[in-house]
Simulated assay, not measured.
Amino acid sequence: MISRTIFTDLLIMAFLVALQVFVLNRITLFGKFTPVLYPVFVMFYPFFRNKFQFLALSFLIGLSVDGFLGTWGINALATTVIAYFRTLIFRTSTDTSTDFFSFQSLQWTQFLLFLFSSIFMHQLLVQYIEFFKFSRIFEILLNVLVTSVISFIFIIVYALIFKIKQKV
């Protein structure tokens, strides 16, 4: 188990926000899709830590991204919602009914399903709040799906580089 404190959490958040704002937001794939990586903080936050602190940090990382991008709280809402429902997403995507959660005990397919479910929910919230119009529903859904797949690939690379599945 990796030892984390509030200080290391804030450092990880600063790294992810800087990476998102100064690097990934400058990458545009196929002319309009930008990979999103900062929600990995929410997805990989240790399950045994204080839930209120987790929700506050999740809100803070989303608000930090919003502050740089000028998106008026959309990312803060999306990260807080996936933080709030993370246990439910984990249980439904892994068929786990115990109260102890661990990524080490998951099979890779369950781990990948959890990641994709989380990023898809995040993107669905962000895209619908930002661009919602009834006349653009299919365009928005396509945008959510493509951005989720691209972000999923970036998150898998991040998880493999930092060996997240073995640590958390």
Rank of each mutant, 00 (worst) to 15 (best):
M1D: 15
R4A: 05
R4W: 08
F7S: 13
T8Q: 12
D9S: 13
D9I: 00
D9G: 03
L11D: 04
I12G: 04
M13K: 08
L16R: 09
L16S: 10
L16I: 11
V17G: 02
A18K: 00
L19H: 01
Q20E: 11
Q20N: 09
Q20M: 03
F22W: 10
V23S: 04
R26M: 06
R26G: 04
T28N: 09
F30I: 12
F30V: 10
G31Q: 14
K32F: 12
F33A: 06
F33M: 03
T34Y: 07
T34V: 09
P35A: 04
Y38G: 03
P39M: 11
V40W: 06
F44C: 10
P46D: 05
P46A: 12
F48Q: 08
F48N: 07
R49L: 11
R49K: 14
N50Q: 13
F52S: 15
Q53N: 11
L55T: 06
L57V: 00
L60C: 13
I61D: 08
V65S: 02
G67M: 09
G67Y: 10
G67R: 02
F68Q: 03
F68Y: 13
G73N: 05
G73W: 02
I74K: 09
T79W: 04
T79S: 11
T79A: 05
T80A: 12
T80Q: 03
T80H: 06
T80L: 14
T80Y: 04
I82V: 14
A83W: 11
A83E: 10
Y84G: 08
Y84K: 08
T87G: 09
L88P: 00
L88K: 13
L88G: 02
I89C: 03
R91M: 09
R91Y: 03
T96H: 08
S97I: 03
D99Q: 07
F100A: 07
F101C: 06
Q104M: 07
S105G: 14
L106P: 06
Q107M: 10
W108E: 11
T109D: 14
Q110D: 12
L113K: 15
L115T: 08
F116W: 05
F116D: 01
S117R: 09
S117A: 15
I119C: 03
F120A: 12
H122Y: 15
Q123W: 02
Q123Y: 01
L124S: 14
L124D: 01
L125W: 13
Y128L: 14
I129F: 09
E130G: 12
E130T: 14
E130L: 15
F132N: 06
F132P: 12
K133P: 03
K133W: 06
K133L: 08
F134T: 11
R136Y: 10
R136V: 00
I140D: 04
N143H: 11
N143K: 10
L145G: 00
L145F: 15
L145Q: 04
L145A: 13
V146I: 14
V146H: 05
V146P: 05
V146G: 05
T147H: 04
V149W: 06
V149M: 09
I150L: 12
F152Y: 13
F152V: 04
F154L: 05
I155W: 02
I156V: 15
Y158L: 06
A159P: 02
L160E: 06
F162S: 07
K163S: 08
I164C: 07
I164G: 06
K167L: 13
K167G: 05
V168R: 01
